[in-house]
Design a protein around this nucleic acid. Structure first.
Lengths: 149, 149
DNA sequence: TAGTATATTGATAATCATTTTCAAAAGATC
DNA sequence: GATCTTTTGAAAATGATTATCAATATACTA
C-alpha cells in the first residue's frame, strides 16, 4: 500500500526539515481529494478541516510535494495551477479536458509517444518531456448539448 | 501575397474601430519579428521604432490581432505569453521547444492527429482543439552538451 | 475641410495568482 | 526542559496582464 504521509515524512527528514501539523494536514487533504485540484480547491477543503491555515503554507507545502515527487503541477490554461497525485514514479499520462464542465481524464497512448520520439528525432531534438492536452466536450456535456439542455 | 496590415484594417473597420498610427506600427513590427515572440520582446522592438508607445496599447492590439485571427497565443510554461503569426487560416501545428536555448520549432504530424481523435473518441470526447509541446534539447544544444561546452 | 461624436492612447492604478518577508510560535535535538 | 532552527500566518511584494480616465486622435458629416 502507498502511504503518502510516510513518504512525505521520509523526504522532509532527509532534507533536514520538520514535520508539522499543518504539513500533515495539507498532505492528507491533498491525497483525499480529486487528483487535479487547483490550489483554491485544495485550500477550501483544508480550511473546512482547519480554518486557521494560511494559503502561503499551502503553496509552500505544494512546492515540497512537487520536490518530493508526490505531486505534479499542470497548467491547463485557465490561470490556475492544478496538482496531481503521483503514486508511481514511472507513470506517464496526458490529459483530456472538457471545455464545458472542466472534467479532466487521463490517458496513455504508446503509439503517440513513439511518434513524438520520431518527430523529435527528425528535428534533431533529444526529448526530455512533453505535454499534450486534448480539449473537447466530454460524453456528458456532448449529450446535454445535443438535447438542447 | 499576404498583407497583414490590410487584413487588419479590414477587421478593424468591420468592427467599427479606428485605424491608428500605433496599431499599424504594432502590427507591422509583430509580423517583422520572430514568429513566437513574447510581449516583452515585441514591446522592446516597438519601442526601438517609436519609444513613446505604452505597453497597454501593445496588449490591446495583440488582443485585436487574436480576435482577427492574425495572431495565435501560446503559453509554454515560462509565464510569458507568446504570439505567433497566422498567415493561413487552416494551418495547424504543434511545437518543439529547446529547454536550453528556448528555440521553438513547429511541426505537423497527421498520424498523431489521427491517434488523438481516436483517443478522444474512446473517451467519448468531441475534440475542439489541442496542445502538444515536445520539450528537449535542440540539435545545437545537444552538440554543445556533448562537447562539454 | 471644419465640427462633432466616438474610439484610442499612455500613464497609472487595479487584479490575480503566487512568493517573499518577518516576528511569533513550534519542532527537533541534547 | 533549554536551545537552536525551521515554520507559520499575516501582510506586503511581485510580475504579468487588464481596467480606468482624462487628453488626444480618427472618422464621419455637412
Amino acid at each position: 500500500m502507498f502511504e503518502p504521509r510516510e513518504e512525505f515524512h521520509r523526504f522532509i527528514k532527509q532534507k533536514g526539515l520538520k514535520v508539522t501539523r499543518q504539513r500533515d494536514l495539507i498532505v492528507d487533504t491533498f491525497f483525499s481529494i480529486n487528483a487535479h485540484a487547483s490550489v483554491e480547491e485544495l485550500y477550501d477543503e483544508i480550511r473546512k478541516r482547519e480554518p486557521g491555515i494560511g494559503f502561503a503554507t499551502v503553496y509552500r507545502t505544494l512546492k515540497l510535494l512537487k520536490e518530493s515527487g508526490l505531486a505534479r503541477e499542470w497548467n491547463f490554461g485557465d490561470g490556475h495551477a492544478r496538482y496531481e497525485h503521483v503514486t508511481d514514479a514511472d507513470e506517464h499520462h496526458d490529459h483530456l479536458i472538457c471545455v464545458d464542465c472542466g472534467a479532466i481524464e487521463e490517458f496513455e497512448n504508446e503509439d503517440i509517444e513513439r511518434l513524438q520520439e520520431q518527430v523529435a528525432a527528425q528535428h534533431g531534438f533529444q526529448l526530455t518531456h512533453h505535454t499534450m492536452e486534448l480539449y473537447g466536450r466530454c460524453r456528458k456535456c456532448s449529450r446535454i448539448q445535443r438535447n438542447g439542455r
